[in-house]
């Protein structure tokens, strides 16, 4: 993998944490991420209209990206408690991407979800949901930048 060297530190840390574990424990770590998915900030709780449905996911997950004046990204996501895998994926991205610059997020390799070592534990099909989330996050950032520019 030639691109991983450039991965922002906070994302690389998440990846390395997963890769350091046995297959079975990777699921437990994913569950921890799932439990850590933050509640939406109050200003967004009554605005489901702002959120985009991630069609690639097997469960209803919605995400919304903010790019602040300094160009820093915040990713917000919501998914039901009975869909812990989807919540886990969203939480990895929310923790891994938030605070990065828009350029840094856009430079994250599209195959980042496949590098977490979850393909065997979770199955490739399910991982595609996370790939969809990353793709939609990037698209929203491009749209925000185009508006601002």
């Amino acid at each position: 993998m030639t691109t991983t060297a450039e991965l922002p530190e906070q994302l690389a840390e998440i990846r390395d944490d997963f890769l350091a574990l046995e297959q079975r424990d990777r699921l437990q770590l994913l569950l921890e991420f799932s439990n850590e998915l933050p509640e939406l900030p109050e200003r967004y709780q009554d605005h489901p209209d702002l959120f985009e449905r991630v069609e690639e996911c097997q469960s209803p997950v919605f995400l919304f990206v903010e790019v602040d004046d300094a160009g820093a990204v915040q990713l917000y996501a919501t998914a039901p408690a009975e869909s812990p895998t989807t919540r886990g994926f969203a939480s990895i991205l929310a923790q891994g991407l938030s605070g990065l610059s828009a350029e840094q997020v856009l430079a994250v390799p599209d195959d980042f979800p496949q590098t977490l070592g979850l393909t065997q534990a979770v199955s490739p099909l399910r991982i595609r949901g996370m790939t969809g989330m990353l793709g939609r996050t990037k698209r929203q950032i491009r749209a925000r930048l185009a508006l601002a520019g």
């Binding site: 699921l27 569950l31 097997q58 469960s59 812990p84 895998t85 989807t86 534990a121 399910r126």
Partner: peptide
């Protein structure tokens, strides 16, 4: 959802994942 079992399951139940 492959993680539901880990969140809590019926006592004594084992898990078999379709995929």
């Amino acid at each position: 959802d492959i993680l539901l079992y880990e969140m809590g399951h019926i006592p004594t139940a084992v898990k078999i994942d379709w995929h």
